[in-house]
Amino acid sequence: MQDNIKLEIKLPKVQDIELVALEGLELMSSHLGIDEEKNGEARILVTEAIINGLEHSGKETPYVTVEFTMTKEKLVILVTDYGKGFIPDEVKEPAIEEKINAENKRGWGLKLMKSMSDDFIIESGKNGTKITLTKHLV
């Protein structure tokens, strides 16, 4: 059995396209016998990373590239968009107390990715943003 699986896909900005990546994740997890609870958390990470990337991808480059590298021990998720980038340190961390009664209730993606992953790296510049997430699976 192959114990190190890699999946690379390019996803266009289409409604629910993140489900294509989740389908791949499910197959890889099943193949390696990954625990359902860890797999569930990986689903959340993959979903948030992709919708965040597509949201920032821009009109000229409406797609993201996604790479998964999975072993029985860990999953590394790399999502790259080619938008105009942003300064991560300037993104205010959301708080539920502020979101209740606020008009804008969104903006949770980075917080979820940071909190649910075991390692979170974000590199952003004028040519795009790369997010690398590591999730331990045991």
Partner: peptide, 20 residues
């Protein structure tokens, strides 16, 4: 439901707000 995203959850926050 096995998958949610933060955009979908933002709608649930609206329901929490209205109920509160």
């Amino acid at each position: 439901t096995k998958v949610v995203n933060s955009i979908g959850i933002s709608f649930l926050i609206e329901i929490i707000e209205k109920l509160n």
